[in-house]
Structure formats: structure tokens, C-alpha cells
Design a protein around this nucleic acid. Structure first.
Lengths: 147, 147
DNA sequence: TTTAGTGCAAAAATTTTGCACATAG
DNA sequence: CTATGTGCAAAATTTTTGCACTAAA
């Protein structure tokens, strides 16, 4: 498993350090958004000493290079997410278990036309976050816990 | 003008105070997202003394009652926006002047179908923010300043 | 009056920076 | 070796709280 991360890091001209690999590993195995602090908590179980700034610095670097994604939740928490899917897509976030699935649906073309036609503006980027309940949580009947 | 705000506040069982009215007034006349601090700056021009906590408290109350909208920008700043349009819609934010226009386009139905069909999940809410350049800024050629 | 609103100071929470030391290549 | 990465302490930024005082209804 490490080999993959090493390859990724090497290709980005980032040094291969145990902590970087651990961060990627944690994010990859969560398949959910994690806050820097949550990642830190997990890191502290693996390393005798880790600083929170290291987490922030690495997350920022990795997201700048598009290896992980960064999301600002409506609750104001910053979250990071490992996203192997490099093409344009959106996220379906489960309000109950906070798991994330990629949605390949995107209405960018229609959006672009609408904005051009009605507003005479030009769309550069868009962020779509879809909240709901995933298959598992629907089955477990955990669906009315949150908004 | 004040009368409108008074009516709104009365209907929400909020007391009509000069500061509340001023906040609504500022937001209404900006037709753009403002951060609590930006609102505070404007408030200080009108009142001999205002505390930032008052701004936060009022913004929170007003947005809980859906009189104004709250947005967390990707840059991590919290913004508030007066939104007279009470029906479901999205925002087109100009990356240059930060002005906001309502977009009536929404792909909720397709989104819902996609999530049901491919993920077996249920969509509860979604947030779509469209960034781009508005008519004015396109004309002024200010379009390549930002992402 | 009585309840809700406000200012101020102070705390909390989150993120960033500076710098000396450690480690990967 | 040399450039990067890291820990620690400390700062900066943003938001929230407690409490005494004020103002609206």
C-alpha cells in the first residue's frame, strides 16, 4: 500500500515521509471527510510526537496539488477528503454517517447557458454539495437525526 | 424603508431595535455577501458604540429565521446575505466584485433521480454556489484577477 | 415592569508563523 | 551535504460566552 503513496509523493516532488504517508493512508481509509483535528487524533496513535501544524501544512500542500480535496462545511469546519476520482464530479454527503460518495452527475452545461442567457455572466467554477442519507443509514432508520 | 424591516422583525417576535434595522439595511443595500466584520465596520459609522458580538448574535438570529442567508465561502470566511427571494434558488457570485445574483435554475430533480438510481440514497438538501464573472466585470475586463 | 438586547472584557476555537532541530534524497 | 519537513511555542484570526447595564413593549 505504501508504494502507491510513495509513487504519488515522488511524482509531486514531495519527500516521502512517514507522516505524509500516514495522512494519505488515514484519509484513504476513511472514505469520509475528516477535520485536521480528527486526523491529528488518529496520527497521535501512530506517532510518539506529531504537531497539529504538521497536519495543517501537509493537508494544505496535498490539496494544492489536488491529491486530496478540501471542503468547507456549512458548520464552518474545514474538512479534507481523499479523492481518487480526478475528473469533475460532486459529493454526496451522508448526514448521518458523514460518508461521502462521488456523484458523476453535473449540470454545468445548463448552468452555464442559464447564467449566460439570463445574467450575461460567465461561469468559472461551481461547488455543489448534496446532503442526504446513504443506503446504509436509510436501512438503519437513522434518517431523521439531522436536518 | 424602516417600516418594512419593522414589520419583518415584529412578525418574528424580535424587538425592533435601531441596530437590527441597521443590519438589515446594510445587507439589503449591499446585494452582496458581507462578513460579520464588514458589517461591523459599517455599523461603527452609524453608532457611537457597537460590539462585534451584537453583530454575530443578530446575524445568527436572523439567519435562523431565514430572513438572511448564511454562506461559508471556500476561503473560510463566513458571509451573510439578505435574500428577498424566499423560494429555492442558487447564487451566482462574481469573483471580481463579489456581487450576488439569484439563479433560478436548479437541477434538483435530476440530482435526486441520480442519487436514488446509482447510490440508493436520498437527497435532503443541496448547496450550489456558482462562481464566475458578472456582466459588469466582464465588460470592465476585470475577469482574470481570480481563480 | 418584564423580557429581550447590548457592550465590554475575556475565553474558546481554529489556523498560521517563526525558528531551531531532524531527516530524506 | 542541502533542501525539506517537523515540533514546539507563540501569535493571529475568528467566533462565542458571561455578566452587568439598557432599552423596547
Amino acid at each position: 500500500m505504501n508504494t502507491d503513496f510513495s509513487t504519488i509523493l515522488r511524482s509531486l516532488n514531495l519527500k516521502i515521509t512517514p507522516k505524509r504517508i500516514a495522512i494519505l493512508d488515514i484519509l484513504m481509509n476513511e472514505s469520509s471527510y475528516l477535520s485536521p483535528e480528527e486526523i491529528w487524533t488518529r496520527m497521535k496513535k501512530q506517532f510518539r510526537s506529531v504537531g497539529l501544524p504538521t497536519i495543517y501544512r501537509n493537508l494544505e500542500e496535498l490539496s494544492e496539488r489536488n491529491i486530496i480535496s478540501k471542503v468547507t462545511h456549512p458548520n464552518r469546519q474545514l474538512y479534507y477528503y481523499f479523492c481518487a476520482n480526478r475528473s469533475h464530479h460532486h459529493h454526496f454527503v451522508c448526514l448521518s454517517c458523514r460518508n461521502v460518495e462521488d456523484i458523476n452527475f453535473c449540470a454545468l452545461d445548463e448552468l452555464r447557458r442559464e447564467v449566460k442567457r439570463k445574467h450575461n455572466g460567465k461561469v468559472i467554477s461551481h461547488i455543489l454539495q448534496v446532503n442526504g442519507y446513504c443506503r446504509n443509514c436509510l436501512n438503519k432508520e437513522g434518517k431523521d437525526n439531522e436536518i
